[in-house]
């Protein structure tokens, strides 16, 4: 059996009377690529926030590489070597592309090595010409790419991406798929996504959320063929 890098037991998150995530048991193996899908309000993003420490779950536990991280703050989770990209682009618009990525690298490396790795990543992402430009002046797709660079530069073993393809052009999505595959060579990845086409193109195991719980977990093709999932997505039995 593959080593487990992320595990949740009975993860529950309540907002007043609303149960956003209900008793979620989840596990992710080393270097696995997993997509989380589900209709709006299914609890994907809540689950994502509980795992990353952006929110503290009402009950249940989260384990990363066997260590309990339930009540941890985001910076503690990230310090373990977890790369996180949130739903809204979270970048430093007033700083250059280089500075953005350097700051991420500097967390784990001394300044000089951080600069070296930053240059490497910028080349790999094809952002070389933009290196000194302020991030705020770049196009949406480029900023998303920089944010992936921020995640990738630290060599994470677990990567959590919330809607990475949102609002991107087909060309940008393709480029990003390439980056995700590359990351997947060394890291387990969770992608929260709406875009079914994107998920199909990545072709991996999919976990379907519905009304705060996990509905099913299977390969993308079987999930797509499943009548219950189709109903959930079309809202027939909701």
């Amino acid at each position: 059996m593959v080593e487990t890098v992320l595990e949740t037991h009975g993860l529950t998150m309540r907002f007043g009377g609303v149960v956003a995530a209900n008793n979620v048991d989840f596990r992710l193996g080393r270097r696995e690529l997993r997509c989380l899908i589900g209709p709006n309000g299914a609890g994907k993003s809540t689950f994502f926030k509980c795992v990353t420490g952006l929110q503290t779950p009402t009950s249940g536990t989260v384990y990363m590489r066997g260590q309990e991280t339930t009540d941890w703050r985001p910076h503690q989770v990230a310090s373990l070597g977890v790369g996180i990209k949130t739903q809204v682009p979270n970048v430093m618009d007033g700083l250059s592309v280089h500075e953005n990525i350097w700051l991420a690298a500097r967390r784990f490396l001394p300044s000089r090595e951080a600069s070296q790795r930053t240059r490497d990543i910028i080349e790999r992402l094809g952002l070389g010409d933009l290196s000194r430009r302020d991030l705020g002046q770049l196009a949406h797709g480029e900023r998303q790419r920089v944010e992936l660079g921020i995640v990738a530069v630290t060599d994470p073993w677990l990567v959590l991406l919330d809607e990475p393809a949102a609002g991107m052009s087909a060309e940008d999505v393709e480029r990003m798929t390439g980056i995700i595959y590359e990351l997947n060579r060394t890291a387990a990845i969770i992608i929260v996504e709406h875009d079914m086409q994107f998920i199909r193109s990545i072709a991996s195991t999919v976990t379907v959320f519905h009304q705060g719980s996990i509905l099913m977990e299977d390969h993308v093709d079987r999930v797509m063929a499943d009548p219950t999932v189709r109903n959930v997505y079309l809202g027939k039995n909701a």
């Binding site: 990353t52 703050r73 985001p74 910076h75 503690q76 990230a78 310090s79 996180i84 949130t86 979270n90 970048v91 430093m92 618009d93 007033g94 700083l95 500075e99 350097w102 700051l103 991420a104 500097r106 967390r107 784990f108 300044s111 921020i150 630290t154």
Partner: peptide, 24 residues
């Protein structure tokens, strides 16, 4: 120094800096 550059990063985006692993 890195401390100053990180401080500017925090000014620009606190959430991002904490997601990078900095204790904001």
């Amino acid at each position: 120094s890195p401390f100053g550059r990180i401080a500017v990063g925090i000014r620009e985006n606190e959430t991002r800096m904490s997601l990078m692993g900095y204790d904001v």
